[in-house]
Nucleic acid binder design. Structure first.
Lengths: 341, 341
DNA sequence: CTGAAAGCGCTTACAG
DNA sequence: CTGAAAGCGCTTACAG
């Protein structure tokens, strides 16, 4: 029934009949405290519902308890929470909760190198940077400032320079392209975004390799992510405007919204999906599950990635070296109407 | 080129040739500092890129700089970031950014009264509680603990007890029901969720009043939010299993996923949408924009609500009384195929 | 095994 | 108008 102030370490020390030092030692398992004393302190702490002030601890230990999440493509997307790009939202939500469970607080940050950024953006204990660009200045900044950070997707120009969870693996590409082949595709076109990040670049590279191995000429196109569904017309123009022999019988888009646009553009020209053309996306969005036809996508497991990233970030924040660079979870296939004949 | 520690108030004081006290006064506009001195301090601060430690300030002022966002329906939804329920995601994203812009950090919190909650969840400077339930224990807890908070949607049992941004206004109901009428509806059925929150209860009440005014018998049903699209069958059974004279020619669901389910269930029974049945939703989700037929929804402006909520929460956090209880932004209508004959 | 003291970087009564 | 001092709630060398 204590409606007022929270108990401090002094209150607890007094109640347990010891000094604040001993309380601190007992609760943090430091120093040499007799088990009898430690037990008494812990019991009193529970009884008083004592919770050490992270603020005071932070001041002492020069920590803020803040984890910063920097979503690099944020500004290239058309709204703050872009429709159809739920990948990042799932990352944010899961990361927030994972951080909280570990007594950290997650802060969505724009660009920490910008002058006048809020304190927390500058003073986070560790940073998670999603989809860094080639030679990304944010990574350069963080590394110069000696801030602990990891990236989701490597900086394509500095692959092994920083800790990162890789993206666009050959395994995921293989998963989708062999599915398309089994579904009847003989000539697969690839559509990436134009952002220079590992996701686009590594996927493209892996796809080229796969196509080469399987004797297919690469049919490749890059379209700005921000065009979303509107890109469909241009993509279909590109691949179906040319002579017959060049036409693909499957289009694999990295972003779900491009795939949606492709389906619509194809249907409007009498190209049937999936009968005449298979369409699939790598990073799916909700709409791909409900539009007609539904579109096959990869499930890239953003929740798992977010959770792993937060756990790694906390290790870094607390000064523990990472045992191993974490591997991304294997994607799985969500097969839907657009690739089911 | 300072790669190491940040400047502290002492560094700045030394550089400006004054005491830390004077620095503090000058930068915070307190005390009486000569304009000449203040100007010098500000100039040096900018030069050294001095940023006061929010941690130290927080310890001193007993503030954490944390705003907690409690999404009450969180656990009743089927995943952490439920598909089709993008309303909350848009709130979270916008609130995160708005908080950051004001030097606060937003923390997604589950239940702050649960024993063992993280520090931040217990020590936030202010709380925002979305969709509280009737006699919500979380509100009781916060109010007993004297924590500043506001709610998005009032506690239906304690309407004026706490600061809240109202939901389910008669104006929004009127907007949708008169649209349905103009679109040809003569007998409108209403489907709410089962959570006992203001959104469900106030909307239902306003809808009943509207129907009464317009000479329609109320055709009403409540279905658990968590059933999502699966609820469609039961809803259509309910309204189309009965004798002819009771059948609605329009169904208005509060949640977008229910509306999706209704459309699917109706179509599978040969009830055409919109020809035989108009369908609309209040809280739309992405899928309603892309499924076929697309479904008419209200845009409840979650971004605006989130931003307003954060601004109010900060006022409360900093001990300033709210000038006025904020009004929710008026919803607008997104008319789509499901109500266009 | 235990505790007094200093200090993390600020703010704020108070004295001058 | 300016600054020395105390204190916010912790942690950690250090002394006993």
């Amino acid at each position: 029934m204590d409606f007022s102030a929270r108990a401090t370490i002094r209150d607890l020390a007094k109640a347990a009949g010891v000094s604040p030092t001993t309380v601190s030692h007992a609760l943090n398992g430091k120093g040499n405290v007799s088990e009898r004393t430690a037990e008494r302190v812990r019991r009193m702490a529970a009884e008083m519902n004592y919770r050490p002030s992270e603020i005071a601890r932070g001041l002492q230990q020069q920590r803020t308890g803040i984890l910063a999440l920097i979503i690099r493509p944020f500004r290239t997307l058309d709204t703050v929470l872009p429709n159809g790009v739920d990948y990042f939202l799932r990352v944010v939500g899961t990361a927030s909760l994972a951080a909280m469970e570990n007594n950290y607080t997650l802060m969505l940050v724009d660009d920490p190198s910008r002058p006048g950024v809020p304190f927390g953006a500058q003073a986070a204990d560790a940073y998670i940077v999603t989809e860094p660009y080639e030679n990304d200045p944010v990574l350069t900044y963080l590394s110069q400032k000696r801030k602990p950070f990891l990236t989701l997707g490597a900086d394509p120009a500095r692959k092994d320079a920083f800790i990162s969870i890789d993206e666009g693996s050959a395994r995921d590409v293989e998963l989708m392209l062999s599915h398309l082949t089994r579904a009847g595709a003989g000539r697969i076109a690839i559509v990436t975004g134009t952002d220079r990040n590992q996701w686009n670049l590594a996927t493209l590279e892996a796809a080229r390799a796969w196509l080469d191995t399987h004797g297919q000429e690469p049919l490749v196109m890059s379209v700005p992510e921000v065009e979303g569904e509107n890109a469909g017309e241009a993509i279909v123009d590109e691949f179906f405007g040319a002579a017959d022999r060049d036409r693909p019988d499957a289009i694999y888009c990295l972003t779900g919204r491009h795939a949606s646009g492709v389906v619509r553009a194809a249907l409007s020209r009498g190209i049937r999906v999936p009968q005449d053309l298979l369409v699939a996306a790598a990073s799916g969005s909700i709409q791909n599950r409900v539009e007609s036809p539904t579109i096959t996508t990869l499930d890239l497991k953003p929740e798992e990635i977010a959770r792993t990233a937060v756990e790694c970030a906390i290790e870094l924040a607390e000064g523990r070296p990472l045992q191993a660079v974490p591997a991304p979870p294997p994607a799985t296939l969500d097969i839907r109407e657009s690739t089911t004949r």
